[in-house]
Design a protein around this nucleic acid. Sequence first.
DNA 1: GAAGATTGATCGATCAATCTTC
DNA 2: GAAGATTGATCGATCAATCTTC
Lengths: 152, 152
Amino acid sequence: MSKGARRPGEPAAGQQSVLQLILDVAHQLDQRLEAALARRGLSGAKACALSSLAEAEQPLTLSELAEESSCVRSNITQLMDRLESDGLVRRVNDPDDRRIRRAALTSEGRKICKEAARVMAEQEQALAEILTPAEAASLARVLRRIADGGNV
Amino acid sequence: MSKGARRPGEPAAGQQSVLQLILDVAHQLDQRLEAALARRGLSGAKACALSSLAEAEQPLTLSELAEESSCVRSNITQLMDRLESDGLVRRVNDPDDRRIRRAALTSEGRKICKEAARVMAEQEQALAEILTPAEAASLARVLRRIADGGNV
DNA sequence: GAAGATTGATCGATCAATCTTC
DNA sequence: GAAGATTGATCGATCAATCTTC
């Protein structure tokens, strides 16, 4: 995907289609989140992987991580390379299947992951302050229906 | 930014925060749009640039294109490289200032751009069919307020 | 042969550094 | 010196091809 604000030919502010509005708002919120994470040396992709690892009881398979992030396996290979060189994650071998590599959080990784959760909560809070509870609920309901392709 | 669905540790479907919902829905809609464009050999970034060029009366400066796409100049340099090798765009020199390069649509570029507009309209239509007019209007209103940071 | 992971290519995005022209 | 564009590095994402192990 391209990350740039996607407004092909909609100069007037009120003229944007709902689709373009959703993409633009998401892009804006995502940039804010990425900027807040970057101040801690993190990125969205890294924070997401760390969070998945923190939740699991045991080190996850790289394939499991790819599944959970809805991305392709080779993506996780590279992400783990970067997280390993950051000292936040360690690859460990699976005792039962030598094809499998698991990702284990280091203690530093566990610490940073808690910071990432705080950052995420801050961003959620900032958004919540813009909306009334009723608006937030109805927004969530509509978005969930869009996510389900209208089958709800 | 990372493009993967961003749900760090929200297993239960109803538990997702509004922020995560917006990012997830946008990611899903964006993937659909990219897939539809890819069938015509395009991408979101290419379609966006072509559309900006089609709207302008005269060839745009690469800086102007960057401005319009809210991205960095070097990004446009590379995008134009790809569009030029696709035969959709041609770089032309500015007669008055030799620092400036402008991007001009080729006739092929103009043709493909119209297809891209149709694809975009299809995606907008698919989304519109999920929502009632009243829902679409209230969704747009709330999203616009989020985009303005609550200052509306 | 299939599953798990990696490698190499490409795309889109950013940033810092550079080059030409003003 | 500043503006416009490009180059080279890095990150995150995808895909096709490969390697090891099952």
